[in-house]
Design a protein around this nucleic acid. Structure first.
Lengths: 220, 220
DNA sequence: GGGACGGTTCGGCGCTGACCGAATCGTCGC
DNA sequence: GCGACGATTCGGTCAGCGCCGAACCGTCCC
């Protein structure tokens, strides 16, 4: 019964609109200040402060104080995976109403970061390429050959699970998370192959990136 | 922002102690009547009825009316996976207080069903055996050889994902879910190799089952 | 030092929702 | 038909919590 209690508690943390908005914003993998989140969610700073305290105590967020700022971020990849799987379950939802909202959600569907890896159509394209190259199996496990291939891109195995399926909530099929997904995303950003759009989670494949992917055999 | 709304709504469904208890009970994969669940959770039948309606409308449960009974069950494997991943996140929780609770939770830790597949120490033993036989890779994907092996046990691939890692909330490591996990569990129950303890989710490996597992090379 | 600003604490308001009991409906079995 | 029983509806109560504004604390910068 203690387990039930714990389940209800973690669910309660996300059951509030404002806290859910905080977590959703933090899915971009970066650290936000308390005020930024308050403005983002449209609540008073005092309200945001209390919510953040609860989320940190609940283990969903990590905080890190610096001078007069309180930076918060997701407590780890496991939190991101939990959030994505819940969002995927919650489903596509209804269509956006305004033109502004429509173009924003379209950009997100095209490509975005999901904590530390890629998501959206871009991630599915990447997965397809990796499948064709024989880096991944159909169940998204990395093959022996795949490990060599990843190694050439600077990947080094750690104690973290190499590959992990993460259900994409816009495409409704799994994309690649785990250590490999995180490494690829980081490498693409570092090389300028993938670039963030403004300050949002949305990303695009640059023309340099398209070139790079083609050279690696990921496209076509 | 519609996505945030949906996330909060599905979380709110599980944020209540009673509803969480319902879902947790239904993780045994069977259908329960409304009254059974009410008694199980210690609430009035009227209260249970309202909760069930909300859970069904939210897509978490499926109902199926028969005469004067209302049977409910989890809406599918995706719900079970969501519940297990949330429970795994919520963590081991504190120790049980009473002797009765302790022995019950010990039985659950030893072996249980998780919707349609095995969980607990028994599932980890199974996973270890499957790894040694080369049926699975370290990332829990089924190998080509594994498909043949499973086929000899009557497994036929469908459109459902063959293998899927499901985080075990007592053992804190992944066990095997997906179509393969479900088939093995069903087959073991059918053969009498694994038996339910009373009416709970807990299961044990029978002596016949131990024999069978040894013959298959799963033990030792 | 003094002002600006990020963050927190506290008191109070208002709404949501979880719960029960009583009444009612439908089904089953005698 | 009649009683038993599972399930539902409805009205009413009560606790919990999300929100804000005001006051306050620390840090930064001039």
């Amino acid at each position: 019964m203690a387990v039930v209690e714990a389940l209800a508690q973690v669910a309660a943390l996300l059951a509030d609109r404002t806290r859910a908005a905080f977590c959703s914003a933090l899915l971009d993998g970066r650290a936000w200040t308390a005020t930024e989140l308050a403005r983002h969610a449209g609540v008073a700073p005092s309200t945001a402060s209390e919510h953040l305290t609860r989320l940190v105590e609940g283990g969903l967020l990590a905080e890190h104080r610096q001078g007069r700022h309180r930076y918060v971020s997701l407590a780890g990849p496991h939190v991101a995976e939990l959030l994505e799987s819940m969002t995927a379950f919650a489903g596509p939802g209804e269509k956006p109403r305004t033109l502004r909202a429509a173009s924003a959600s379209e950009a997100l569907a095209r490509g975005r970061t999901c904590y530390d890896h890629l998501a959206g159509q871009l991630a599915i394209a990447l997965k397809t390429g990796l499948l064709e190259l024989g880096v991944l199996t159909a169940d998204l496990a990395v093959t022996r050959h795949g490990l060599v291939w990843l190694g050439e891109l600077g990947f080094e195995p750690s104690k973290r699970q190499v590959s992990r399926a993460c259900l994409d909530w816009t495409e409704r099929v799994p994309h690649v998370a785990g250590a490999a997904g995180a490494h690829l995303c980081g490498e693409f950003l570092r090389r300028g192959w993938v670039r963030r759009i403004g300050t949002s989670r949305a990303v695009v494949l640059t023309s340099r990136g398209e070139h790079g992917w083609r050279d690696l055999g990921l496209l076509g």
